[in-house]
Each structure stands twice: as C-alpha cells, then as structure tokens.
C-alpha cells in the first residue's frame, strides 16, 4: 500500500472577480518509507496540495488517499495518523516548549514518554528552554519544536510544508539530517521547499510550478535526462557577458548561475569553439562544459510549459 496517492487533483479559488487555479490536475504517489519533495516557488500550489492531503481542504475534483484512507470519506482516520507541520508557525505561543509538547501528546491520547525515542535527537536541543514560551523561541528552535509536536503521536506519514523557509544554511542542513533519521524509522515524508538545492536530499521529487507538476522522478534521473549541451562561462565583466550570451544565435538560454553564467546550447551547437569565437572580446574568458543541476532542469521545464 502506498503512503500517499493523488489522482487528478484540482482546486481553484476566487480572488475578487478572478478565478485562480491553485492546482491543475495533479497526480502522484509516495511509497512507504519514501522521502518525497515538492520543489517549487511560492504560489506553485504546494500548500494547497498539502492541505487537501491532510484533510483540511476539499479538492474540487480528483481522488486522494493517505495511508490507504480516502481523504474525503475517511478523514478522521487520516487525522489520527498523520503529522502536519504547516508553513506558518502554529503552536501556542503563550504555552511553554514542554506544555506545547504535552498538549499535542494528550490530544492524540498518548504521552511524551511513550514516543520520546522518536523526538529525542531533536528535543535534547530544546530541553534547556523547556519552560520558555514558544513565542519567545528563535526561528530555528520554533521549527524544531513544531517538528517534535508533529511527531509525538508517532505518525505514519509526515507532512512538512516549507520547514526550511527563511532558515539559514546551517539550520537547513541540520534539519535535513533529522529528516533522514526519521525516514530510517520507517516514517513516510512529504516535504515542500522553495530551495532547489534541497532536492538532492529527497528520494524522489516533483518540480512544481503554477499548480502543476512539471516533472516527477528521482533527482538523479531528472538531472541525467537534461538533453541540451550546457556550459559555464565566466569573464571579467559578467554583466556584459550575459547580454552577449543572450544575443547569440546558437544559445537557447543563458542565465546567471553563481560564479558563472550558464549557457544552454541549441542542439548541434555544443562546441566550445563556437562560444570562444563569439566571445573572443570578453576579458579573462573561462568556459567549462558542466552537468545540469536541478535548478537548470527547473528553468528548462518552466520555459517548456
């Protein structure tokens, strides 16, 4: 049995006179014990999808199951089984760290003691602040507490909606290490993120944009299947270089990429010689053939749609 299945899920909202299609026919499934990532910018529809799956929102069309239960008819079963960490901090700000945790354990008719092993690694970092009101914690600590509260009833499927947004690089790295350990305990995880570099930490990902899944596969397969020749180009004047690259006929797409610009070549134009010839005037020119990463693939898919 799959941890999550979704078939042709659609959802639209009214925004004034306009209708916004938040989800346009999304289908996918998550295997048991899998760490599945929804990668996409704000407004892609990630939160709407999560809210439908955790039974807080009804889809306009389509079917979905979580842990084998149907999201509309069997929602109470789902609510008992899943852990959900919304994107916005939703714990009680005026309860202490410990009180929040006990509250969530009690609601699910369990105790902190019973499932302490699940949260131990995370909770030890919070223990020095056990009596501090949750509202007075730092961003990273709030995120850890929210994760503990989502785990305390030993969920079978965990939904984490943008747990690392606005969190610095160090805390983000720690958070993903925690997820890996939870996965090893057999918990299925659906996580969303706007950070492309977190894709490689998932078993499979869906690249999501504008209410649609652009592509679903393992991050390795997605980058491997990038067909176009790709070069990283650098010069003494990066601004001028970008404008030059954008005007070249043999180049399909050019964009900044950290220290370099990436130049996606049209088919049959994969020669470094072509680039060198046309960029001869650029000072301190450096050209390297490179492999696409997730962000290259995302940009490519966005432009196809």
């Amino acid at each position: 049995m799959k941890a999550i299945t979704a078939e042709n899920i659609r959802k639209s909202y009214k925004n004034g006179k306009e209708t916004v299609e938040a989800l346009r026919s999304v289908s996918f499934s998550v295997d048991r014990g899998e760490l599945f990532g929804c990668i996409g910018p704000d407004g892609a529809g990630k939160t709407t999808l999560f809210r439908i799956l955790v039974t807080l929102l009804l889809a306009d069309e389509g079917r979905a199951t979580v842990d084998g239960f149907e999201v509309v008819k069997e929602y109470p079963e789902i609510r008992r089984r899943v852990g959900y960490m919304p994107g916005r901090f939703s714990l009680y700000q005026d309860l202490s760290v410990q009180e929040n945790l006990e509250f969530y354990a009690t609601i699910f008719r369990t105790s902190v003691k019973e499932n302490y092993h699940l949260i131990k690694d995370i909770y030890v970092q919070l223990e020095p602040f056990a009596s501090r009101p949750a509202g007075k914690l730092s961003g990273g600590m709030k995120q850890k507490l929210a994760l503990c509260c989502a785990l305390i009833h030993k969920p079978t499927v965990l939904f984490l909606d943008e747990p690392t947004t606005g969190v610095d690089a160090v805390s983000r790295k720690e958070f993903w290490e925690m997820l890996k350990r939870l996965k090893q305990q057999g918990i299925s995880i659906l996580v969303s993120t706007p950070y492309m570099d977190e894709a490689s930490l998932c078993d499979r990902i869906a690249m999501m944009h504008d209410g649609q899944f652009l592509k679903t596969d393992s991050p390795q397969n997605i980058t491997r299947n990038f067909q176009q020749p790709l070069f990283a180009v650098k010069s003494g004047d990066m601004f001028e270089l970008l404008h030059r690259l954008k005007k070249m006929e043999g180049i399909q797409n050019a964009y900044p990429f950290g220290e370099y610009h990436h130049a996606v070549m049209k088919s049959g134009m994969d020669t470094e010689a072509y680039l060198r010839e046309h960029l001869a005037e650029s000072p301190d020119l450096e050209i390297l053939p490179v492999r696409a990463d997730i962000e290259d693939c995302f940009i490519h898919e966005m432009q196809k749609h």
């Binding site: 910018p41 704000d42 606005g166 706007p194 492309m196 962000e295 995302f298 940009i299 966005m302 432009q303």
Partner: peptide
C-alpha cells in the same frame, strides 16, 4: 525568498 529560479535571476 521563495521566488522561482527564473524570476530570481
């Protein structure tokens, strides 16, 4: 923050 990779660029 949260902006898609194309718009970010």
């Amino acid at each position: 923050g949260g902006v898609d990779p194309l718009t970010r660029r």
